[in-house]
Simulated scan of single mutants.
Amino acid sequence: MTDRVDVPAVTRRAAQDAGGVSSEYLAGYIEMLDAVSVTGRRLARDELESRRALGASAAEQGIPLRSLVDLYLSANWLVWRELPAVASASDKREIARIAEAILRAADDAVVALADGYDEAQRSTLRQQEAERREFIDDLFYGRSDLGRLAERAERFGFRLAGTYVVTAAKADEPFTDGDAVTRRIESLLLRQFDTREVLVTTKQGLLVCIAPGSLAGVPAEFARHLDVVLGVRQTWQVAVGRPHPGPGGILRSYEETRGALELAASLGLDTRVLKATDLLVFQVLFRDRAAIIDLVGTVLGPLDQVRGGAQPLLATLAAYFAERDNATAAARRLYLSVRALTYRLDRIKQLTGQDPRDPAQRFTLEAAILGARLLNWPERPLQV
């Protein structure tokens, strides 16, 4: 049927017109158009399946879908005048019928190509995401030797060497791989920094950024982009770990960020950007649970005996310390008069024997207040 169509010449010219895409991806297509021009039929199922297979093959070879579509559109206009049915058409009505059949076939073929292409890409992405997640898990938990980790890191465009800092963000809604916020933050960061040095991922609901210690500006930019993307829609907090060398250092820095976020939640710290180095004193202070329970019970325990319980007096101390011993500001924060706040401070001194206005005794009270927050006292009883 195609004895008057020079198929090799048409496919070769179409490939050239499409920028050099291999003419192999047109295999059988010219013959389909010839048959359609004569019969006016739709493309058969096996013909569409062959296009899907070619689309998948093109995706696996990294050929852009745009180039593939260009190849088919070029073939359409190049073969049109050479089709025997067109050459022998008797009138405009016949030409219109053939054109309609050809355009419909071209449409079906391109849709099938795109279906195969998209499915192959989705399959590849799923495989890459699974491999990337396995790499992240091994990176954080050390389930692979250093050499293999470095080799796998290279495949994901990440250079695994030197000292690293982990920055982690927590928000009202947990972060997940591929969600809109995660993709947006990653895109913004990778516009500024080398993709071989900065890695953005999620772990345990946190948005995590791994970067060399030498790139000191990454944590600040990470927080800035979060502020832009989340705005006032969600409350969020960022913790920055300390720099540590090698893959083991990444895990250590990550654990520091998690610990900082958990500690901040326990202490009621609402600072947007937390630094693990700034919280070391609290971690040391509360490492001995028995000692902090004894401190809270001894220093603050008497406050729980007053009418109304300890909570109002604990809130008074917390506000007073937060306002750096400014009674007027603390009273404003608590919606009290300065006189009422002063009365409460005097009552605390009377009950505990510790004067919050005395610098020598303030630290004991402040440490006890922080301990009470960590232990959720007085809501929970003190237990070792």
Rank of each mutant, 00 (worst) to 15 (best):
P302S: 01
S22E: 13
M1T: 03
F363G: 12
L78D: 01
G249K: 10
G178W: 06
R339I: 00
Q361N: 02
Y72D: 05
L26G: 01
Q237T: 07
E82P: 00
G309L: 01
T195E: 15
L261Y: 05
R362T: 06
I293Q: 11
V69H: 01
Q128D: 13
E134F: 04
A35G: 07
E366Q: 08
L365F: 00
D304W: 03
E100D: 10
S90H: 08
A329I: 11
A331Q: 03
G259K: 14
A105H: 07
L251M: 15
A59Y: 02
R362H: 07
A44V: 04
E47F: 01
S123D: 09
R233M: 12
L285M: 15
A150Y: 12
Q305D: 14
V281G: 02
V38I: 12
T2K: 01
V10A: 01
L274R: 02
S90D: 03
V284S: 12
D179K: 09
I95E: 06
A120D: 11
A44Y: 04
T163R: 06
D325T: 08
A360Y: 02
E60W: 12
P243C: 07
V5K: 00
T277N: 04
R132F: 12
S253Q: 09
V200C: 09
A18S: 12
E154K: 15
L279V: 07
R122A: 06
Y320T: 09
E49T: 14
L207H: 01
I348E: 00
V228F: 14
C209M: 00
R272N: 02
L345K: 09
